[in-house]
Structures are given as structure tokens and as C-alpha cells.
């Protein structure tokens, strides 16, 4: 078939330049974009922010204090004056749950912060390798061979004896702090082991970067994804552990109260005043759910390979 000349036209210069250009997206922007698409994780994030705001500002706005007793109004059910009712000493339960949120959440965040120490431990262990790695990891393995809860119980028994004056809160921070860096150390070490064989590390070596610089500026930033996920998931676990310990009498002592203590105190009068148990228990469950969902969402967003 004959080809007519009209079919062969020179390209317009303007057309040549049209390329498909996408603005370059950093890892974090990409992760945030993925997280925003996950309605459950975003919902959880909103819930967490609301809980945080209520824990910080709620007690200031409440007309009652957490330890104010009013025997004329004890064991009341929920009402307009006392939203969650009052407890056996006439204390406003809503205010106490808000205060409990401060304590429970602070324990969660301390655990998350401490777990960041594990980043350094695991990083050094994985990066240095050899016998150093062996010794450092054997120690972690030994700690791992019995459940954290038993370690924490042991430490709480001891710490509460040596510092009886500060109502167990500091003891709780220390006891949780001493174990919560362990899982992080393991995860980071695993990451570093695979990362340190990669070309960009070799490149850093060849241009003469120091070992400390390679570890802190090249390796650790590259495992931030799993680190953030692990730290986020450490929060609900610590809140859970605190509730558990308070329930067996090793938690924060009166008149301060965490959610676990509130739930534990309510057990005595469960039959007559179930609302005393209901509100703190609901607070625990909602918070745990929100952090777990957020953690799962973060994992999907930060580590696309893990996606199912």
C-alpha cells in the first residue's frame, strides 16, 4: 500500500518535551500517602489524638480532682454531674479515668522511648559482628528465654521495696524500661545484618566515612520503618502489662490510679456497681485497639514488602 506524504510530519518540538514526570517522593511521603489510604489506621490515629488531648487537658477542665472524696455521693451511677458515676469513696470516676489515662499512657510512652535504646544496642551488635555480636545477642537470648512478665514482676517486687515513697510509678517505668529494649535490639540487629552488605555501605566505606558515621547516618536511618512499627506496638503492650500488674497488686498505689488499678478496685463491688469496672475496662480496650490498628497500619505503610 502506498504511503502518502501526509503521514510523515515532523514532530513539534513542544510535543517532544512531554514526558511523564512524577514529582519525586521520599520514603516518608510515600509511607504517609499509603497510611492516609488506610481508613482503620487513620481512624485509630484520630482516636489516639483525642485520648491524648483528653488525658492532657481533661483533668484541668473537670470540676473534680482525682482524689476528692464525697461520701454523700458514693457509688453513684453515671449522671449529668458525674459522667461515669462515682466510686466507693465518692470520687468522680470520669476524672479518675482521665488521670488514669495520664498514668497508663505515660507508661506506654516510656516503654516506647526505652525501646529506642534497643536500636543502638542492636545496631552496634549487628554492625560490629563477630564475638561482640555473639556476646551481646546471647545476653538478649537469655533475657528472652523467660517471659517479660516474670522479669517485670521480679523487678517490681524489688523496686517497690526499695522505693516505697513514690507510689510505684517510677518502679513501673524502670521495670518496663529494663525489658522493653530487648525486642527492638533483635529486630534492629537483623535489619543491620542484611543492610551492611549493601552497596551504599561499601560506597560510604570507600569515601572514608568513619564506622560511627556509617552506623548512625547510613544504617540506622535505613531501618527506621521497623523501628517505628515496633515502638508503636510497644505502647499497647506496656499499657497491657501495667494493667496486668496493677490487677495483681503490683501497680500504682492509692490515691493515684491507672486504668488497671481502677479496674482491679472495681472487681470487689462488681455485683452491685458494674459501671466502676466498665469505664476503665472500656478505656483500656479502646486504647489497645487503636494502638494495635495504628501499628498494623504503619507496618503496611512503612514496609510494603510485608503487605499481605
Amino acid at each position: 500500500m502506498a504511503l502518502s506524504r501526509e503521514l510523515f510530519k515532523p514532530l513539534q518540538k513542544r510535543e517532544l518535551q512531554i514526558e511523564i514526570v512524577r514529582p519525586s517522593v521520599t520514603y516518608w511521603q510515600d509511607a504517609w500517602r499509603r497510611l492516609k489510604k488506610n481508613p482503620v489506621a487513620m481512624g485509630s490515629l484520630v482516636v489516639i489524638i483525642i485520648i491524648l488531648l483528653m488525658a492532657i487537658f481533661g483533668p484541668m477542665l473537670s470540676p473534680y480532682t482525682y482524689s476528692e472524696q464525697d461520701f454523700a455521693r458514693k457509688n453513684q451511677g453515671p449522671s449529668a454531674e458525674h459522667w461515669f458515676g462515682t466510686d466507693a469513696l465518692g470520687r468522680d470516676l470520669f476524672t479518675r479515668v482521665l488521670y488514669g489515662a495520664r498514668i497508663s499512657l505515660s507508661i506506654g510512652f516510656v516503654a516506647a522511648l526505652v525501646s529506642l535504646l534497643g536500636v543502638l544496642y542492636g545496631g552496634i551488635s549487628g554492625f560490629v559482628g563477630g564475638w561482640v555480636d555473639n556476646v551481646m545477642m546471647r545476653f538478649v537470648d537469655i533475657m528472652y528465654s523467660i517471659p517479660f512478665l516474670l522479669w517485670v514482676i521480679m523487678m517490681m517486687v524489688y523496686l517497690r521495696e526499695i522505693m516505697p515513697e513514690n507510689s510505684g510509678l517510677i518502679a513501673m517505668y524502670i521495670a518496663l524500661g529494663l525489658v522493653y529494649w530487648l525486642p527492638m535490639a533483635r529486630i534492629v540487629r537483623g535489619q543491620i545484618l542484611s543492610l551492611k552488605e549493601q552497596e551504599f555501605v561499601l560506597a560510604a566505606h570507600t569515601i572514608g566515612a568513619s564506622r560511627t558515621r556509617i552506623l548512625l547516618r547510613h544504617l540506622i536511618p535505613n531501618c527506621m520503618g521497623p523501628v517505628i512499627v515496633t515502638a508503636t506496638l510497644a505502647i499497647p503492650e506496656a499499657i497491657f502489662t501495667e494493667a496486668f500488674l496493677s490487677f495483681i497488686g503490683l501497680g500504682v498505689s492509692a490515691p493515684r490510679a491507672s486504668w488497671g488499678t481502677l479496674a482491679s478496685d472495681a472487681l470487689v463491688s462488681l455485683k452491685s456497681y458494674p459501671h466502676l469496672l466498665f469505664f476503665p475496662a472500656a478505656a483500656i480496650c479502646i486504647t489497645l485497639l487503636a494502638f494495635n490498628f495504628l501499628g498494623d497500619g504503619l507496618r503496611d505503610a512503612l514496609d510494603p514488602k510485608m503487605r499481605k
Binding site: 499497647p236 494493667a243 482491679s264 472487681l267 462488681l270 475496662a281 483500656i284 480496650c285 489497645l288 494495635n292
Partner: peptide, 22 residues
């Protein structure tokens, strides 16, 4: 299973006790 993970055993236990026995 999500509820099971978020609900501490003492909450499950006390709820059971409240409804099933009381």
C-alpha cells in the same frame, strides 16, 4: 480475633462473671 487481642484477660473474665453468673 482483634477484640481478643485488645481485651485483657481480666476484662473477659469479669464480663463473663458478671453476665453468666450474676
Amino acid at each position: 480475633s482483634t477484640i481478643g487481642i485488645a481485651m485483657p484477660s481480666f476484662v473477659i473474665g469479669t464480663l463473663l462473671m458478671y453476665f453468666l453468673s450474676y
